[in-house]
Simulated assay, not measured.
Amino acid sequence: MDSFIYASSPSRVIFGRGSITTLGEELKRLGKEKPLFVTTPRGTQTIPELEQILTTASLASAGVFGEATLHTPVEITAKALEYLHAVAPDCIVSFGGGSAVGLGKALSVRTGLPHVSVPTTYSGSEMTGSLGETRDGRKTTRSEAGIRPAVVIYDVDLTLSLPVATSATSGVNAIAHAVEALYAPDKNPIIEIIALEGIKALAAALPAIISSPADIEARSKALYGAWLCATCAGSTRMGLHHKLCHTLGGSFGLPHAETHTIVLPHSIAYNAPSVPDAMGKLTGVLPGSDGDAIRGLNLLLKKLKVKTGLKDFGMKEDDVPKAAEIAMTSPYANPREIELKSLTETIRRCWAGEEARVDL
């Protein structure tokens, strides 16, 4: 067996139906009593329920900032910081998907305030010490220990209202974290076990959610799988897939989870010849693979009835060469050398919505 280093995640995780009711207790455990809620405009509708939970625990919120948005633009963070200084909270509670979690991280790392995350999608940002921020049309990523939330509360009930389409794409986004962990330069056998279990859980649960959105067992399995996959993202370095998604989202304004969903089979196809061992293990947890992981991923996307072309979200074909050039700058660690010609063709296939295939 190869040598490896494994550092466990320091986050405290509360998982289960109704676990949101522990919010007040968790804040008290941290010695805090006056949180700032950070969420999206849609998420503000649920904040009164969270504030009632605080009231029951004899706590109260400092306020609500409800303008979190995709890709964590620095101008939104600046606006949120101004509000934070005005209301003077002693901690931050993010509620929602990756946009809310990202803003919560951005505020926490800038202020040193502890961050409690309440995710309502499967995308997984809450378990990582990384923060992607957008400035002047470019998305950059920073990683440090202080970015990771101190506590994560996974309440299955909060995912029941998650639209089917969003459930599908955020679930595939989670799978992407685990897939890249299988061949990351700092991979280890513990994370490999977690990654394969997470992928297996999501690959089984997501099609069931498409058929029956209120299926509690499927929702529970999906959230469990998302947590495991997010743990992988928080424990290893990501590669070409995440570089492409950060480029496409930050520079072209494409939606986060949908972009991950479209890019995943193509980025894996690009790397497949260089990681046969990882591809072999991946086939074992993707139903219908028949020995071909790319076939399994393509089949999963068909079951989930998701859009498979970036053109469906407004990207122009003329943007493909520019996207490739941006993705070539400051490349992430990757098992296969990144070549401009092959990368450009990979992005073109993502744009066109073609089925992924290993021939580059």
Rank of each mutant, 00 (worst) to 15 (best):
D2V: 14
S3L: 15
F4Q: 12
I5N: 12
S8H: 13
G16H: 11
L23P: 01
G24V: 06
G24E: 01
E25H: 14
E26K: 10
L30E: 02
E33M: 10
P35L: 06
F37M: 10
Q45C: 10
Q45I: 10
P48C: 07
L50D: 02
L50G: 02
T56H: 12
L59E: 03
A60P: 05
A62L: 03
F65L: 00
G66F: 04
T69Y: 03
V74M: 10
I76G: 04
A78D: 12
E82Y: 07
H85S: 08
A88W: 02
I92Y: 00
F95K: 06
G102D: 01
L103H: 04
G104Y: 00
A106Q: 10
V109S: 05
R110F: 05
G112F: 10
G112D: 06
P114Y: 03
H115A: 11
V118H: 05
G124C: 12
G124P: 05
E126F: 07
G129A: 15
G132Q: 02
G132F: 07
E133N: 06
E133A: 13
R135F: 13
R135D: 13
R138Q: 14
I147Y: 00
I147E: 01
R148T: 02
P149E: 07
P149F: 02
V156I: 13
V156F: 00
L158Q: 03
L162P: 01
P163T: 11
V164T: 15
G171K: 05
N173V: 10
A178G: 07
A181D: 05
L182M: 15
D186Q: 04
D186G: 04
L202K: 00
A204C: 08
I209D: 00
I210Y: 08
S211G: 03
I216Y: 08
E217C: 08
S220Q: 09
L223N: 06
Y224L: 14
Y224S: 10
G225P: 01
T231G: 09
C232T: 10
G234I: 02
G239S: 15
H242A: 13
K243R: 15
L244V: 06
C245R: 11
T247G: 07
L254D: 05
A257S: 05
V263Q: 05
H266Y: 05
L282V: 02
T283A: 10
G284A: 15
G284M: 14
G291S: 07
A293F: 00
R295Q: 12
R295N: 14
G296L: 11
N298D: 15
L299T: 15
K302A: 15
K302V: 12
V306M: 11
T308V: 14
T308E: 13
T308M: 14
G309N: 12
K311H: 13
G314A: 07
D319F: 06
A323I: 06
E325Y: 09
S330I: 08
P331N: 05
L340Y: 11
L343E: 00
E355D: 15
A356C: 02
D359H: 11
